[in-house]
Computed example of a mutant assay.
Amino acid sequence: MHVADIAQTAHYMLCQTGLMNWLSDLEIFATLVAAVVHDFEHTGTTNNFHVMSGSDTALLYNDRAVLENHHISAAFRLIREEDCNILQNLSRDEFREFRTLVIDMVLATDMSFHFQQLKNMRSLLSLAEPTVDKSKAASLVLHCCDISHPAKRWDLHHRWTMSLLDEFFLQGDKERELGLPFSPLCDRNNTLVAESQIGFIEFIVEPSMAVCADMLECVLGPLAAAPGSTLARTPAVSNDDTQGNEGNAKFKIRKPWIACLSDNKKIWKEQATKDAEARAKQEEESNNPPPPTEE
C-alpha cells in the first residue's frame, strides 16, 4: 500500500509540477520504477533494528543502508528473470544509466542521509548560477514523496500515521523480547504520538518540501521562460508569478502541501494539548487516590 501511494505521489510530482518536461523518457521511467521498488521486500523493521539485532541482511551490507541496499538488489534480481525483465529492450548504455539512477534514488530514501541531502541541495541552490544534477533532483523528489503523508489531507495523513505506528510498535515488542533498547517511536507505552508528528512535520517534512519546491522552480524556470512554453500555464503553476514582464518574473509552482502541513500540524497541536491535560489529570489522580469507602 505504501509503495502504491509513493508511486502515485511521484507521478503527481512529475506531471503536476512539470518536472517531466525536464527529464528524459528514461529518467522518468527510472523515477517511477524506483518508486515502485524502493521498499521491495521490506521487513517491517528499521535499519537500526537490523544492525542492533545483527541480522543476516545487516551482515551482508555491513550495517550501511541495510534495507535500501536490499530493496535495490532484490529488485534487480527479480527484473533479471525472463518473465519479469521490463528492461530487455534497453541498450547496454541505457541499462547502465537506468540502473545508476535507480540505485541513487533508492539509496537516497535512507533517512540517515536526510540532513546531508537537504544541506547539499540548499548549498547548490544558493549559487549564483546553480546547475542541478538530474539524479540528485530525482532523488530528492522521491525522498520527499516517501515522507509525504503529512503533506496530504488529514484523513490520509492520520491513517498512514496509525499504520506506521502499528509497525513501529511491533518492532518495539521484538526489541523488548530481544533485550534491545527501544528505537525512536517504537515503545508503545511511552510514545507521544501527537508530539512526534508535530516534530516530524516541523523538522523533517516542511524543510524537505520547501527545498524540493525551490529546486523544482530552479530547474523549471528556464523551461517556463522559453518562447512558446506552455509550462507556465499548467494547473500547478501560479500564473500570478509567471505572467507579465514577458516571462522575466520568477517561476513559481503551486504548493498545495503547504496548507495540508499547516492544517495537520494544527490538529496535532490540539491533540497534544488534550493528551497533556489527560496525563496531568491521571497523574493527579494517582498521587491523590480517593479515601477508602466504609462498608
Rank of each mutant, 00 (worst) to 15 (best):
H2F: 13
H2K: 08
V3W: 02
I6E: 02
Q8Y: 09
M20I: 15
N21T: 14
D25F: 11
L26N: 07
H38V: 05
F40R: 05
G44P: 05
G44F: 05
V51G: 01
T57R: 06
Y61Q: 00
V66G: 03
L67N: 11
N69I: 02
S73M: 10
A74H: 05
I79K: 00
R80T: 11
C84R: 10
L90W: 11
R92H: 13
R92K: 14
F95N: 03
E97M: 12
R99C: 13
L101P: 07
D104H: 14
D104Q: 12
A108M: 11
A108P: 02
A108Q: 08
T109V: 05
M121P: 05
L124P: 05
S126P: 01
A128H: 14
A128Y: 12
P130M: 03
K134L: 07
K134Q: 09
K134V: 06
V141W: 03
L142W: 06
H143V: 08
I147M: 06
P150A: 02
A151I: 05
L156C: 09
H158N: 15
W160R: 07
M162D: 12
S163E: 14
L164F: 14
F168D: 06
L170T: 08
L170N: 09
Q171I: 01
Q171D: 05
G172A: 02
D173M: 09
R176H: 06
E177N: 08
L180S: 03
S183P: 00
P184R: 04
P184V: 06
D187V: 04
N189S: 10
N190Y: 11
S196F: 00
G199P: 07
E202V: 09
V205S: 05
A210K: 13
C212M: 15
D214N: 12
D214T: 03
E217H: 02
C218W: 01
L220Q: 01
G221R: 06
L223C: 02
A226T: 09
A226F: 10
G228F: 01
S229T: 06
T230F: 10
L231C: 01
L231K: 05
A236N: 15
V237Q: 04
V237L: 00
S238Y: 10
N239W: 13
Q243A: 09
G247P: 03
K250D: 11
K250S: 15
K252F: 08
K255G: 01
C260E: 15
I267C: 04
I267W: 05
E270R: 10
E270T: 12
T273F: 10
K274L: 15
Q282C: 09
S286N: 07
S286E: 14
N288V: 00
N288S: 06
P289A: 03
P290C: 01
